[in-house]
Amino acid sequence: MADRILKKDNLGKLVASVNGNGGRFIAPVLDARQVVFKDVTKAEEIVTEYILARNSYKEYVFPQTEVVADFTVEKHGVDLKSREVEARETVVFGARPCEAASLSSLRAIFTWDYIDEFYTKREDSLVVVTVACTKADDACFCTTVDLSPESRAGSDLYLLETESGDYMVEAITDKGRAFVEKYKGAFTEGSGKAKTLVMPEKIGTIDLEKVSARLKDKNHYDDQVWARLTRKCIGCGACTFVCPTCHCFDITDEGTQFAGERRKNWDACQFDTFTLHASGHNPRHYQHQRWRNRFMCKFNYYPEKFASKGCVGCGRCIRVCPVRLDITEVMEEFSR
């Protein structure tokens, strides 16, 4: 049920009001021949014909690189000053239902054994405005992981595009309702005819329960199946960096020998240095072992530890892979 209508002519007003309030308005725009989530200041920049943005909007809650502390080396030792997170209202417009579902997974990991305020403060001020899918491609597999263009999980506002290019707005969370109230000038009464949503076909040969049951039995660990299916992995981090649930990071110091900053940077379990020990030993010596870790993280560790989804079926990893290693082919193998 739509609570309100967001007229396309009012989108510009909404963008301007959010920005005018000191907030950020993130939406899909065209950049270097790709649709990418970026800050927008004008509604005209926003792209509506797209399947998914190239990047996940996770970078607005978990930036690719950020300074967490500053240090100076003094005579008496090292002075380390933590940075405060400056969280502004951040609106992500045009997220898809699959990636909206990834937020609870990110929150689970960043509040698990330690509350990472660099994440939580940003997420607290994030408003996810999802636009349901009217397009899909053969990499989309949300329905195979029990999500669909109709999934509301993670969205604060859930929008359906109408035939005339407006949006029917459904407020899902209190945050969403408060947002509509705050910017009520942009939301109007009314109705419209929603465009038909496009459901990716569920991959019949995949059974998530079987996948998770087979992964639970760690006897598969040294199974030749990993090498057979994932030998072709070249070990770049493209899949993990575009993934909305991948969350690993590295801490690195940059600066001179007297002063500098401590940064938190995205890291990827697909890099050979990810598990390299100082001794030179690497417990994940071969690439297929690193790939196994990624798959285990998504379909075993996440569901077991947090009862949340490690994979939302957005298909970004499939689209971006230089060797087209398709995660659904591995899911299929583990459904046997």
Binding site: A32, C236, A238, F241, W266, A268, F271
Partner: peptide
Amino acid sequence: NEFSRCIKCYACRQV
């Protein structure tokens, strides 16, 4: 400007 988009995934190196 072109390099500003780099996400340090090292796909260029790995491939």
